[in-house]
Simulated assay, not measured.
Amino acid sequence: MKILVTGAAGFIGFHTVKKLLLLGHEVLGFDNINNYYDTSLKYDRLDEVGITRKKVIDNEYVNSSTHKAFRFIKMDLTQKAAIMDLFRYERFDTVIHLAAQAGVRYSIENPDAYIKSNIDGFFNILEACRHYPVKHLTYASSSSVYGNNKTIPFSVEHNVDKPISLYAATKKSNELMAHTYSHLFKIPTTGLRFFTVYGPWGRPDMAPSLFTDAIINNKPLHIFNNGDMQRDFTYIDDIVEGILKVNKNPPKPKSPEIAPYLLHNIGNSNPVKLMDFINCIEKNAGAVAKKIFLPMQPGDVSKTYADISSIATAVGYTPKTNIETGVKHFVNWYISYKIKNKNEIKEII
């Protein structure tokens, strides 16, 4: 298939692109490469799939030097006319929409970015899918939509009308917008509520990277809610497997009155205590953290736990990577990546 992957320079997008190429699909990667976190990591991800930083120019195609079936374009979701032109010219079979302004805490500091990217940007993708129809739009939602839901595990059947961060509110809005377009224009859409994704090439603002950096560099490690938290940590390979299975299985309503719309949790369905996760990093890093315990941060939740029965039933999704294996892979990658970057800096100096 010919597939558009937005957020292709991001953590999940990059891994999704790699897997699609391995399976023989034609892929166009799309990303604005914003500076929410260090763009060097984003360009290093792209370099892994043959996109050289010096060749990346706004709104221009770049051909991969290592994959004939991969091209990349640096473009912003808010560029509606350019996105419409892209869809009209390319005629994608499916779209995997992973681009968004991420981060719960950052949404408190910079709310404008979330409205522009997550609301306006998603609207532009929906409009493009409406006017230049695709077989399926798979898009990223988030476990953040559950807010302070006390019913465990979190189910897609639960009410999520009380988000506690603007980020969560924009993701819930995406689900509503997708349902509307599925209902009105019969666009097959599936939303995926991701649960704490981690692994090699992960975002530097996420807990695994922050924890590992603090531990290996003997820096203070800030642990919120005094460590009394649990997260449904999900390894990136399991996430990508789920995305690809969903992408090739668009919703098939049983009657014309039902919108071709689905919503799934995608997680490990096995919450891990935060302190156990930290202990696992310590073990693999060969160092002990300097722990500083702090109160809960605004917008955070104490526990996440995914009920994955809907995605398991729909596409046979089954996560396979336990925390011990996943953390080992992540810490090994993190240390090697940092060493490589230090060596490159020394060569430049």
Score class of each variant (00 low, 15 high):
265 N>T: 04
252 K>F: 10
277 F>I: 02
250 P>Y: 10
260 P>Y: 12
263 L>I: 12
288 V>L: 14
267 G>I: 00
275 M>T: 04
260 P>A: 09
255 S>V: 00
276 D>Q: 12
255 S>E: 09
271 P>D: 01
265 N>K: 05
279 N>C: 03
268 N>T: 09
267 G>V: 00
280 C>N: 15
256 P>Y: 08
290 K>W: 12
269 S>L: 11
258 I>S: 04
295 P>H: 03
265 N>I: 04
266 I>L: 15
253 P>E: 05
267 G>T: 01
253 P>V: 02
289 A>E: 11
249 N>D: 12
267 G>K: 00
287 A>G: 09
277 F>N: 00
259 A>D: 01
297 Q>I: 10
263 L>S: 10
256 P>T: 07
248 K>D: 03
291 K>Y: 10
261 Y>A: 04
254 K>W: 05
273 K>D: 07
286 G>I: 02
256 P>K: 06
243 I>F: 12
273 K>I: 06
245 K>D: 13
249 N>H: 15
267 G>S: 00
264 H>W: 10
247 N>P: 01
271 P>L: 00
247 N>G: 01
263 L>W: 10
250 P>F: 02
261 Y>D: 03
274 L>A: 03
288 V>A: 12
255 S>K: 14
254 K>D: 01
262 L>T: 07
276 D>A: 04
254 K>Q: 01
286 G>P: 05
283 K>C: 00
288 V>H: 15
260 P>S: 07
294 L>G: 11
285 A>T: 03
268 N>C: 06
281 I>F: 13
296 M>H: 07
276 D>S: 12
289 A>W: 14
275 M>V: 05
285 A>E: 04
279 N>T: 05
258 I>Q: 10
297 Q>P: 04
291 K>H: 12
296 M>Q: 08
246 V>N: 02
283 K>T: 04
268 N>F: 07
283 K>H: 10
247 N>R: 08
297 Q>C: 04
272 V>I: 15
252 K>Q: 13
292 I>D: 14
255 S>A: 01
264 H>T: 01
260 P>K: 07
295 P>S: 02
256 P>R: 06
249 N>F: 11
251 P>C: 06
280 C>A: 15
